[in-house]
Design a protein around this nucleic acid. Structure first.
Length: 284
DNA sequence: AAAATTTGACCTCC
DNA sequence: GGAGGTCAAATTTT
């Protein structure tokens, strides 16, 4: 059922992946040297552009061949991606009889970030999500243990995003963070809305949340006027995606918003009348 | 009391 | 059998 990507497509994905990889390396380097907001924003924008292009190529492209999420899986960090299969099998075997979980996981994007601890000596900065630590392992050849986190809302909202955090051997102030899967806790929240959920259907479970990296998709509100942006929210909000049954459909794109020092969940903005920008209709 | 973390056991893959 | 990933009971924190 897995249809191979054609040569040109694969080449394109490969080139974009390399571009994103280099941009992320540059960002890691810059963050260790106190970049200006404008520099950081520019890099965020570059990385988001690469990611969006990869998403379109892999999910919105030639139908459903839509293989595994080659895009974000991107091999950004070759040393971590090969294991994602283990997780699939782990989950399918012991969790449930379950199909749902394992299928989802096959589509889960994986990518790695390096975060400098300038944001906090005890660990990488908050990335906007709530994580629950569920394990820690000493890794062969690594000086520091690897910590395993899953979304706090795993049970309540069926959100299967996970991440692994490991202090870098080379630079102890840097944390290598590997994200696996995407947060669906926001989609679940939408699903609660009576208008959006039809009784008994499973649309929600088939949706793929493209909000796969709060850092990369975040929108800064500082200095944005120095960029040629009409609005700090000028990200595409819909993408054509395919789910595990290889059916295309629209999926919600829900970036976090970066306001001063905090990540803001757009769906909570209506609670804060002082938020300095108009809230896009989409989030209301 | 509830939520979060720790940590040894267990599972799967190679 | 070793390594990486996850579970789940015990413990700690809020």
């Amino acid at each position: 059922m897995e249809m191979a990507l054609n040569g040109e497509h694969m080449k394109l994905v490969d080139e974009l992946t390399q571009g994103m990889d280099k941009a992320m390396q540059l960002r890691s380097y810059l963050r260790s040297t106190s970049p200006s907001e404008a520099q950081d924003l520019l890099l965020q924008t570059i990385i988001s552009t690469f990611q969006n292009a990869l998403l379109v190529l892999n999910w919105g492209g030639p139908q459903s061949g839509a293989p595994t999420p080659a895009a974000p899986e991107t091999s950004l960090s070759p040393d971590v991606s090969p294991k994602s299969d283990d997780m699939n099998k782990d989950f399918s075997n012991r969790r449930d009889n379950g199909t749902d979980t394992s299928n989802k996981r096959k589509l889960q994007p994986t990518w790695t970030e390096q975060v400098s601890s300038e944001y906090g000596l005890e660990g990488p900065r908050d990335d906007g999500y709530n994580w629950r630590k569920y394990g820690q392992k000493d890794i062969l050849g690594a000086k520091h243990p690897r910590s395993y986190y899953r979304c706090t809302h795993r049970a309540a909202r069926d959100c299967f995003a996970t991440k692994q955090v490991q202090r870098s051997d080379d630079d102890p102030t840097v944390f290598d963070t590997t994200y696996k899967g995407t947060h669906t806790c926001h989609l679940s929240r939408n699903a609660i809305s009576p208008q959006k959920q039809e009784p008994g259907d499973n649309i929600q479970q088939n949706q793929i949340d493209l909000d796969f990296n709060t850092t990369n998709l975040g929108v800064y509100n500082e200095d944005f006027n120095t960029m040629d942006m009409q609005s700090p929210f000028s990200f595409p909000l819909k993408f054509l995606c395919s789910d595990e049954e290889n059916e295309n459909h629209m999926s919600t794109f829900s970036p976090f918003l970066y306001n001063q020092d905090t990540w803001v969940d757009p769906f909570d903005l209506d609670l804060d009348p002082d938020f300095p920008f108009d809230i896009p209709e989409f989030f209301r």
